[in-house]
Design a protein around this nucleic acid. Structure first.
Lengths: 203, 203, 203, 203
DNA sequence: GATGAATGAGTCTTCATTCAT
DNA sequence: GATGAATGAAGACTCATTCAT
């Protein structure tokens, strides 16, 4: 486990630097200097610079994926809206706890490498598809207005991403308030007009 | 005007390559090879690689800014919703016409340089502020529900960005449909519940 | 003669720039820009940058050589000292009139090119040899003390060069005073001790 | 000290090449090839080509400065003339031992860079000033004839420089003879006529 | 003759990665 | 395992010279 501790140490420092300067402007020299290890040691733990970066990216995608849970419809489950709220809250709390990681995902990862681009693209695609499925179900249940659920899903995803970025930047409101507003906005955007009125201020 | 034609030629090729590979992975050698000019010729028209990139970025920001017009409230003006629709349409049409440029903005520009980052940040900030002002006005006029307009503005901006990206990627629906859906979604997301019902399918 | 005028114009500007920045840091772009001619035109008048530089150097060496006259011993000639003084004066007056050219010779010409180095070396060698011959003659005539005339000739040449540089730099005394002091110093340095006393203040 | 040895190795080779070809015509490729190191290794030891050159220049100026000692007038000190002779000898011996370094100073350093030019200029200025002070003192003591000591100092400096260059070129006499002749010449050039006779052949 | 756009060889410098100790 | 000196491929930029108009 000594090995894992070393890796973690390097990852921690690399994360900070990647978040600040991006992949290309970060050089191995700075990582090893910050992590207080020798240049050669770096390559004992990571195949190369790119692999390290990918590992950080994998970390953030895995964690985010874990925090976005599928809506459960069984009896005894919290209401769907409550589950959405919980999802959002888990995502936003992660954002606040791991700003640097989120920064890497949001700002420094696209256009860096074909494979990685695809990996990230795929993640968002999956999230968007999950939202779309929920919307389609909502329509079937008469809760969601009839609409192009593909586009609507993108709008919701985009709204969340932008709010996440804003939150990570440290500007704007508290996590709780942002969660409520994003949820409120998203729900009203797709809700059946007749139901929209029932969405109270606190949703 | 010969000079401008040459510049344009180089810009055209560079745009394509930057869009595909990003700033760092694009090298001057490839630009000049694609543009069928000699290495030195490049430097007759641009100070350096960065300056060329910035010019492309400036181009897209300028064009987008020009296409997003402030909502006019005077008599004889089209309805605010119609003006929003026109804004969205102009933006989306530009996206379709200049996918590569939009790609550069969306995927390859953040985390590249302090100044450029700030330049882009500022652009989005301005757009978000414009949206927020509209929402605040909407609240005063009783058209928009009471909400955290800062967060809501970010949600709208995010939704547009994500839809734009999707559109640029070539996936999904037609421009017209996307415009309508984004508009519809955004309006309902912030509209007074009583008015939401009046937003017909075609808004 | 139009052609000669053009050449002269370019030479004049090039001279100034070479004097200020040296051969390597002066580029053809600046020369043609200052001379208000097109880049291509430059090559109608000069084979290349180096040739232009050599021409300037040739100019200064030729002019200096012309101003350093062999001492004439016949009856009716001015005294040898008077002839030395005239030589020195002619050299120094040229220095003051053509500082830029002298600067090129003194500061920017050595170590630039094998051939040119040899050319300059040879010039100084010739001057040194001339001085040495005079000293040898002086010894034969009992005017000059017995000494290593090779080294003494170098000392005299060095003294003149250094004084010339100082003069060109604009620091120090008037031409007349410098001429007298250099002459006085040089003569005393080599004169027979018995004659040294006869060299009055004004030599 | 390993590091110092490496630096020294590179400096040694660079010195030789700079001496032969000057700063601009020497390229890093040749230095590393001669020093049998890789291109990148060069930059482990020196920031860039210019810094390396400056270090060599600094070396020669520092060493020369150390070898030129102020004349001490106290009892028990060697006679002033003996001290001058020792200074000259130390300088000339350094010249013979480090011809390449001296070549760099004498032939390749002027007109290369504003700062460096100033650095060298200043060095000579200081030496000239030191000579001038000695002459002024000599006048006060009745040993030196009344003269423009500024110009005389330049003549002496020039004589030494020229002799040094000659010596470095390998032409001419032995160090010992040159020292004696330069000293003799310089002293007689400025001595009170009455004393000039007392300066025997061996000064 | 004059022009100036175009050329491309030449140079410095960076940095991810390796390997002998 | 750890080290850090060494490597060399890669890339940006300059500038003397040419040549079609």
């Amino acid at each position: 486990m000594e090995r894992q501790a070393r890796r973690a140490q390097v990852l921690r420092h690399a994360k900070r630097i990647f978040a600040r300067k991006g992949y290309h402007r970060t050089n191995v020299a700075e990582i090893v200097s910050q992590a207080r290890i020798a240049r050669g040691t770096f390559y004992l733990y990571f195949d190369n610079k790119k692999e390290l970066f990918e590992e950080l990216l994998e970390q953030v995608l895995r964690e985010l994926a874990a925090r976005i849970r599928r809506i459960q419809m069984g009896p005894g489950e919290p209401s769907p809206i409550e589950q959405l709220r919980a999802n959002l809250r888990r995502v936003m709390e992660f954002v606040m706890a791991e700003r640097e990681l989120v920064d890497i995902l949001l700002n420094h990862s696209v256009g860096f490498d074909k494979n990685l681009d695809a990996r990230i693209q795929e993640f968002y695609e999956r999230v968007a598809a999950q939202i779309k499925r929920s919307l389609d179900l909502g329509i079937a249940m008469g809760l969601v207005r009839s609409c192009d659920t593909g586009v609507a899903a993108r709008c919701i995803l985009g709204g969340v991403k932008e709010s996440v970025a804003q939150l990570s930047r440290g500007a704007g409101a508290e996590v709780g308030e942002v969660v409520e507003e994003v949820l409120n906005f998203g729900l009203r955007g797709v809700a059946q007009p007749e139901l929209s009125g029932h969405l109270a201020a606190g949703v």
